[in-house]
Design a protein around this nucleic acid. Structure first.
Lengths: 201, 201
DNA sequence: AAAGGTACATACTAGTTGGTATGCACGCAA
DNA sequence: TTGCGTGCATACCAACTAGTATGTACCTTT
């Protein structure tokens, strides 16, 4: 029955997306993988057919969901020929716009996993670092191109700025999360926009 | 035997400090309270004599260790009559100075707990929020006093700046943690200093 | 010195967690 | 049509986790 074939074909991805949601809510250590699949009317048999261990679920979530999702924007930053500061500011404004109460209360999935897993699981840490590194390089390169094109102040260090930008961005998610406050998050994003604007030549 | 009496007098605090250390390493969900006390040659009897539940251990750690520790500096900020921007910068420089590889790898204890516990435990979240609120108000008030004294630009919003400052600070811990890089943390602290300097009148 | 509270130690336990072992239905290639 | 791989379902399990129940030595109060 081809309906079944279609269903089977994406069982793994359906599981993965639910795991992503549960990790977002409860953290990786709080993830109860068997309960998540039970909630989908799937048994542990299916789960352990696709994933050899709990850790592999977390790694797959980072690798197949979080990483492509986060790097999509930053890759666009590298290919475009617009003003890098405008592009980065547009991204900040977009984030401000789409974040609602629930997303703020749950926090940034990437930041959550970094804080929880980096110190206790080196495999996790390296996967998460590769995502951050990708974002970091895209921003730094965009600023460098901006400098070369005379659009960005020459006396700033693109690497330092990129690092500070990511820190402020993720930190804003973190502080807004404990406050459960979308306005606080937007206020932080406004300040970050002002900071980026100050780099314009 | 008074030796025993002295030992007994601070058993609770000794347990609490070890719990703080283990939570710093493994997170609250990763805390194995019985193993921590066993490591101190103390049994579960003593542990549950002082703490009714695992949650109460975490709350006590926030309330009795993290909160006083973090608010110490910020209270000083409120009582002093120096230049608020110099004081805040001095704090940033001090943080830069004392953070070593291990501390960076483990991250900021306050930030760690915020990211892990805020979404899943409201009691925790409110305790953690009270710490952040305390820091936030001290910084905002210091900036307001600076404005009144003509030391800080009038066109900045002290609340927005205080919020952004805390976000950047905690975010810098988070990003440095996944990078396991003290230089990255120091670079972020330098940028934060520059940002604070830009507020001087 | 009797009584009661404090400060633990020891032993036990229900429920959970992260799996494993096994079976079996189905599609497909030989 | 037979054998084999894929895609699950069911049942089982050892270790762990967060406690509880109970006992007891010591100290203090009366």
């Amino acid at each position: 029955m081809y309906l079944c074939a279609v269903k089977n074909a994406d069982t793994r991805e359906r599981i993965l997306h639910r795991m992503y949601g549960d990790i977002h809510k409860n953290g990786f250590q709080g993830l109860r993988a068997d309960k998540v699949v039970a909630d989908m009317d799937i048994t542990k048999g299916a789960l352990y057919h696709y994933f050899p261990s709990k850790q592999s679920i977390g790694i797959a979530v980072v690798d197949e969901i979080i990483k492509p999702n986060y790097l999509a924007f930053y890759r666009a930053l590298n290919q475009s020929i617009g003003h890098p500061i405008d592009q980065i500011k547009a991204h900040i404004v977009e984030l401000s716009r789409i974040m609602d109460d629930e997303n703020i209360a749950l926090g940034c999935p990437l930041n959550n996993l970094i804080q929880e897993m980096s110190p206790i699981d080196e495999v996790f840490r390296l996967q998460l670092k590769s995502v951050i590194d990708g974002m970091y390089r895209s921003v730094a390169d965009a600023l460098r191109r901006g400098q070369a094109a005379g659009l960005v102040k020459e006396n700033i260090d693109p690497d330092a700025v990129a690092n500070f930008y990511l820190s402020s961005l993720e930190g804003s998610f973190g502080i807004a999360k404990v406050q459960k406050s979308v306005p606080m998050f937007r206020s932080s994003m406004d300040m970050l926009c002002q900071f980026m604007e100050s780099l314009r030549k």
